[in-house]
């Protein structure tokens, strides 16, 4: 009987000692990390385009932190989803087509002779990348434009085009070497091959 009592007492003492240590450690060594919202926001492309259904990147970051899906950002594309999955330690899922498709990077271009100077696009631009005044021609500051196409819709005369960024020697990227597909069929390629055969 006494041995049981001793065991209980010992366990209780141990539990309280460790509890105190853990409690102390929790207070003493608290990590003041970046709030998760900031970290998520840092991974988003900051186009502020609202394609995710939120009024900007920060609100979407907040929504992700609150448990929303991570695949609602078309401008960021798969690489952003992968980065988010990595940060949040969840599975990377394909982009939700409902919110748009991943498109090549574009910039807005105003056909200046058609611009009537209504300033509607200026008000729509989330990053102040359009220059102009009322009844004056507007123009896009290319280096600041995020390609969100929020300015296209409000334009009453439809004079804004989203044009893909031109490839110049300065921003040209080396392509990955292509391996002969007949030599190295990846498992993914093989699956497609089999699917193709069955259809």
């Amino acid at each position: 009987m006494s041995s049981i009592l001793i065991a209980i007492v010992v366990l209780l003492v141990l539990a309280s000692v460790f509890g105190i240590i853990l409690g102390f450690a929790a207070v003493r060594f608290r990590v003041e990390g970046d709030p998760i919202v900031e970290q998520i926001d840092a991974l988003l492309p900051q186009t502020q385009c609202g394609q995710c259904g939120y009024p900007g990147c920060k609100p979407y970051a907040q929504a992700i932190a609150d448990g929303d899906a991570i695949n609602k950002c078309p401008p960021g594309g798969q690489s952003t989803i992968d980065a988010l999955a990595d940060l949040l330690d969840v599975d990377a899922i394909p982009l939700d087509a409902e919110h748009g498709e991943e498109k090549p990077k574009t910039v807005a271009y105003i056909r200046e002779d058609e611009c009537i100077g209504c300033t509607k696009c200026i008000q729509a631009c989330p990053v102040d990348a359009i220059l102009g005044a009322a009844k004056q021609m507007h123009t896009v500051i290319v280096s600041e434009c995020t390609g969100c196409d929020l300015c296209v819709e409000p334009c009453p005369v439809d004079c804004i085009d989203m044009i893909p960024l031109p490839v110049t020697p300065a921003n040209w990227k080396w392509p990955a070497p292509v391996s002969d597909p007949s030599l190295i069929l990846t498992d993914r390629g093989r699956g497609q091959l089999l699917q193709g055969a069955s259809q």
Partner: peptide, 13 residues
């Protein structure tokens, strides 16, 4: 870099 620049501009706006 561009994204963080855009964020700064967005926040400023």
């Amino acid at each position: 870099q561009k994204a963080s620049h855009a964020r700064i501009r967005f926040e400023a706006r």
